[in-house]
Nucleic acid binder design. Structure first.
Length: 504
RNA sequence: GCCUCGGUAGCUCAGCGGUUAGAGCUGCGGACUUUUAAUCCGUAGGUCCUGGGUUCGAAUCCCAGCCGGGGCACCA
């Protein structure tokens, strides 16, 4: 044995039996002059190509077509002088190979039995045909180990525990079809969104992740430190203020698909890092950007699922298609409460309503807007399942939105609710730099008073706005949440590698 | 942050004060040339999450902590 090929004895002693045996097999294969990890293999067909080209074969029908195919071993059946092995590709396509002693020879078959385990990558070469039982197969005339797995596969007929799924997604992807599907579904959704934007002549840009002021949303940021300049930096909580700078500079139809970071709670609808789509359209408003959002979601559903009719894991269905419902926040809240709520309703009255409903609202008592939004979420938002635009928000909670064109005290903002969670939000953007400065200064006062989620004042953003931003519609949509809406899974299932606490 | 349920073999789980902690799959040895989670015979594999405590005796009961699921609170 060479030093490179030897597992240190001390480590090997601590290893569970099944891991130790596989390490020993690897070492033995290499010692005997074989390769456990060959650099290249003469692959001529993918598993999918063989299935597509020969799926029609009758049971027992053989061809003279020869293929070299590789895949991960997911089943092994040994009937003595004939072995069956099922190879799986990354998408979950499977193809059987048959190794007969009469074809590969006694030594090659014995080596196959000794060297190949479940989970290994295997290359087989041989004629394509169908077994007597009708299983499409490669009748191997030779085989080669493509990559030796040192760890056993989990049982493939039961799902991994939820913890193992996220901690070892690579295993989850091998074992669970839904995990494989989510990766492709997410990619197809993102592609659909991008292509839709490109068809509309939107320009995709990337704005800073590291920011000296984290603003553009009401959220607590992550902090970090830059050594070269010796300054504290924030991970962005939203791209909004930079996308607006771009609009000021003339990128008048602009979008970004990228990550935001918020240092807050994590649950089935919240992840500390999450993917966000934001888009701004000059000479649009919250109506045009709402229509755009509806089309983006519906087109993504059609492109990725083939339908706007979503079937959830529990079997229930709902439709993302058609014209989405619209409700006005104050009207729907008034209707739900059976009493009129307006921008004139006082904080004391709202607290009284909350108390009658048994809600703890004292920590929200800083202003009218927060109370109205909280009451609305409890009474209306949590129960909205069909996609619904909720329109016209209180001004206090929306410092970046322009005043409603006819209703005093409200702003032209909608939230898009689907299945009880907020999927997207859209504005008629506030472009008056004087009002914008007033709004952010008011937020700064809240921050100074201890509200650590008040929006920060970004002076350079205000200077940019003073160069005049055209009237615009803007929207932001949680990409992970779009996947949730399309699949019914929790946010951590939509993220390939979600943050997981390390074991102690 | 609070409440609640869970953490046992490589994987999925049972056992919930009383012999030496079990099952299925997996592994290892053997039989078998058409299997589909092959079958059959034999066999190995465990800091029972961690640390304290109670007890003649703890995987099991109590306390503290770590990690995870669900719910509440906060947030998108």
């Amino acid at each position: 044995m060479t030093a490179e090929n030897t597992t240190p004895a001390q480590a090997a002693d601590d290893l569970p039996e099944q891991l130790r045996i596989r390490r020993d097999k690897r070492a033995r294969i290499i010692d005997q002059g074989g390769e456990a990890y060959p650099v290249a293999l003469p692959v001529t067909h993918t598993v999918a190509q063989v299935r597509a080209g020969y799926g029609h074969l009758e049971p027992g029908q053989e061809t003279d077509d020869v293929a070299g195919v590789a895949g991960r071993v997911v089943f092994l059946r040994n009937t003595g002088k004939l072995c069956f092995v099922t190879l799986q590709d990354g998408e979950g396509n499977r193809l059987q190979a048959m190794l007969s002693q009469a074809v590969v020879g006694e030594d090659a078959l014995a080596a196959f039995k000794a060297d190949v385990d479940l989970g290994d990558h295997l290359f087989v070469h041989g004629r394509i045909g169908s077994s007597r039982r009708g299983e499409l197969s490669v009748f191997a005339d030779s085989w080669t180990l493509a990559s030796k797995s040192l760890r056993p596969l989990p049982v493939l007929h039961k799902d991994l525990s939820e913890e193992s799924r996220v901690r070892q997604r690579y295993v989850d992807l091998i074992a669970r079809p839904a995990a494989r599907d989510m990766v492709r579904l997410r990619a197809n959704v993102v592609r659909s969104l991008r292509e839709n934007f490109h068809r509309r002549d939107f320009v995709e840009i990337e704005t800073p992740m590291l920011q000296t002021i984290a603003s553009g949303a009401a959220a607590r940021p992550f902090t970090t430190h830059m050594n070269a300049y010796d300054i504290e930096l924030y991970l962005r909580i939203a791209p909004e203020l930079f996308l607006k700078r771009a609009v000021v500079g003339g990128v008048e139809r602009v979008f970004e698909i990228n990550r935001n970071f918020r240092n807050e709670g994590a649950d089935s609808t919240h992840s500390p890092e999450f993917a966000m789509l934001e888009a701004y359209e000059a000479y649009g408003d919250y109506n045009t950007i709402g229509a755009l959002t509806q089309n983006l979601v519906q087109t993504a559903a059609l492109d990725a699922l083939g339908t706007t009719l979503v079937t959830l894991p529990d079997g229930t269905e709902y439709d993302l298609g058609g014209e989405w419902a619209q409700v006005v926040m104050y009207d729907s809240l008034s209707e739900s409460l059976g009493e009129q709520i307006t921008t004139e309703t006082t904080v004391e009255e709202l607290l009284g309503i909350g108390a009658r409903l048994g809600l703890e609202l004292e920590h929200k008592a800083t202003n009218h807007g927060k109370l109205v939004e909280t009451l609305w979420e409890h009474r209306v938002g949590d129960h909205l399942t069909a996609p619904t635009f909720v329109r016209d928000f209180p001004v206090e909670t929306s410092p970046l939105v322009r005043a409603h064109r006819t209703v005093p005290g409200q702003v032209e903002k909608w939230d898009l609710y689907v299945r009880g969670f907020e999927l997207a939000t859209g504005y008629s953007e506030l472009v008056d730099p004087v009002i914008q400065r007033d709004r952010l200064e008011a937020q700064a006062l809240l921050a100074a008073a201890g509200d650590d989620e008040a929006m920060r004042l970004d002076e350079d953003f205000l200077v940019a706005m003073e160069y005049a931003m055209p009237p615009s519609g803007g929207m932001g949509m949680g990409l992970d949440r779009l996947l949730m809406a399309l699949t019914g899974y929790g946010i951590r299932e939509t993220i390939l590698f979600p943050l997981v606490k390390p074991h102690a």
